[in-house]
């Protein structure tokens, strides 16, 4: 009876709007990223800057993509390391 009442008078958690919101959120992550292809490029450049403080990386082979499956979008970066910098330890220690 209570269930009937709450369905009758609306309980947001059960409604389809949450499905709509979630789908919209996901699709917009992609849309917004693809509206500006520069975004990934800028991200790449800044990633290289940061990581270069700590290690030598193969900038040419660096790959950054947005990966998605049904309910999650992940930023996937593949960054081949050519060598570690000698300063790494002291830098890391100071953080």
């Amino acid at each position: 009876m209570l269930d009937f009442l709450s369905r009758m008078f609306g309980r947001e958690a059960n409604g389809s709007k949450n499905i709509a919101k979630e789908r919209l959120r996901l699709v917009l992550v992609h849309d917004r990223a693809s509206v500006s292809p520069q975004l990934l490029q800028t991200l790449k450049v800044e990633l290289i800057q940061v990581i270069s403080h700590y290690m030598d990386i193969d900038e040419e082979a660096l790959e950054v993509t947005l990966d998605s499956n049904e309910n999650q979008v992940a930023l996937v970066a593949s960054i081949p390391v050519k060598g570690m910098k000698r300063t790494t330890r002291s830098l890391a220690g100071s953080i």
């Binding site: 008078f9 609306g10 059960n14 709007k17 949450n18 709509a20 919101k21 919209l24």
Partner: peptide, 16 residues
């Protein structure tokens, strides 16, 4: 429909 949770509300849309 918004009350029943079957349509996105204004807050939802503005938020997005």
């Amino acid at each position: 429909m918004v009350r029943q949770g079957d349509m996105m509300s204004i807050e939802d849309i503005i938020d997005i």
